[in-house]
Simulated assay, not measured.
Amino acid sequence: MLHILTHDILPVFSMLALGFLLGRLDKVSKGEAGAINRIAFLILQPALIFPLISALDWSSFRVGALAGYAASQVALFGLTFAVCRLLFRRELLESWLLAMATIFVNTLLYIWPISFLIYGEAAALPVTAIVAWDAAVSFAFFIVTTDLMANRGAGPGPALRRIASNPVLIAIALGMVVNVTGLPVAEPILTAMGFAGAGAAPLTLFALGVILSGHALTPTPLVATVSALKLLAFPALVAGALWAVAPPEAWQTLFTLTAAGPSGAMAFALALLYGVRTDAIAPVIIWTSVLSLFSLAWLA
């Protein structure tokens, strides 16, 4: 457990921690971090996502395990959304994004590289399946629905144009087209994408750390509740769902490991993009990132 924590988890977490530290010391400004994050979103993340989606072997995935994971996401999302709206009286869009934070794990940029360090590429197939699911379905769903909810009076035209011009969604769509049709992709293009995509995780995590450093860490009742739902309820739901469908042990272990990961940064990024208050979302990401260090090491 200690070796996994020090050799596989902390090296990935260090970029987030470094950004947070340099942000608190005023060595890197929020504006500079925002520019880094924008470059990562426009260029590096699409370069990481397209080869992943286009090369997936969907037949190797355990459909029952993915269905159990997805069902757990739906159940916890509904519960968290109701708690935020009815118990804590938060606004619609903030409740939507807080609920997203409990089920959308930082899989692509955090759990995926950690799982490769621990288990290797072949053993990390279950995590790759979740990355594919979250990238192709969950990620796209929240980008689209958040945009529509935030611009309800603007009509469908502007919303469709914004969605159609989103670089991550474009990468997902093109990757799916190439995957389904079997169209070849030139090797130099894949090499360039591999070179660019390698920087997506460290730069995004670093920028996130800088941006989060400007937020208070106080664990309010709302922050504590949402963090607990993320770190305790979600892994428990996933473990229970997988016990019911009985996939191979590696799938159950790695799906539960992924569910125990920290909240993904996308909920925070969407809140910033659409002017939603972040005084609860930011601490949730910080606390789940820190506390999940120990749960991930134990589960791995």
Rank of each mutant, 00 (worst) to 15 (best):
A224V: 08
H215C: 11
Y274M: 05
D8F: 08
G175K: 00
R62H: 13
Y119K: 15
S54I: 09
P248T: 05
F88Q: 04
A35K: 15
E249W: 15
A260S: 10
M149C: 10
R38C: 08
V210F: 07
L190S: 11
L21C: 10
L257R: 01
V284F: 05
V28T: 07
H215F: 10
L242A: 00
L205T: 01
G78T: 11
W251A: 04
V105Y: 11
S295W: 07
Q45N: 14
A154P: 10
I172T: 05
G240R: 08
G155A: 08
P113E: 05
I53K: 04
P51N: 13
W58V: 13
I285G: 09
L296A: 01
A246S: 14
P167M: 14
K27L: 14
W112R: 07
L232V: 09
I43E: 09
T146G: 05
A70D: 03
F20E: 02
E187V: 12
P167W: 04
A122K: 06
T102M: 13
V276K: 01
F13E: 00
A35G: 13
L160R: 15
L160M: 06
P262V: 07
P126C: 02
L42I: 14
R161H: 06
L160W: 03
A132T: 06
I36A: 11
A17M: 06
L97C: 02
W298T: 03
L21W: 12
A171I: 10
S292Q: 08
H3K: 15
W133R: 03
G197N: 02
F77T: 12
V245P: 03
E32Y: 09
D57V: 03
V245T: 13
A282P: 07
G64W: 00
A271I: 05
L22E: 09
A135F: 03
A55P: 06
A132N: 01
F268M: 03
W112K: 06
V177C: 13
A260M: 02
V105N: 11
N179V: 01
G31Y: 08
L231R: 10
R161G: 08
G23D: 01
A173D: 06
L48N: 00
L5R: 05
G120M: 04
G261R: 01
L109R: 00
F142W: 14
G197Y: 01
V63I: 14
F88V: 02
A233V: 09
V12E: 04
S60W: 03
P113V: 02
T253R: 12
F141P: 15
I143T: 12
V105L: 06
I163D: 02
M1K: 13
R24T: 04
S14N: 11
T145V: 14
L242H: 01
L293R: 10
M193F: 08
D57G: 10
P156L: 11
I170F: 10
P221S: 01
D279A: 06
A67N: 13
H215A: 11
S138H: 15
E187M: 05
F139D: 04
F61G: 13
L222M: 07
A198N: 13
M1P: 03
V226Y: 02
I172E: 04
L212G: 11
N166L: 11
P188C: 08
L92H: 13
A244R: 10
A250R: 14
I170G: 12
R152T: 09
V238L: 01
D134H: 00
H215E: 10
L229Y: 04
R90T: 07
G31P: 09
A135V: 14
W251L: 09
D8V: 05
V74Y: 13
T6V: 06
A123K: 07
I189K: 13
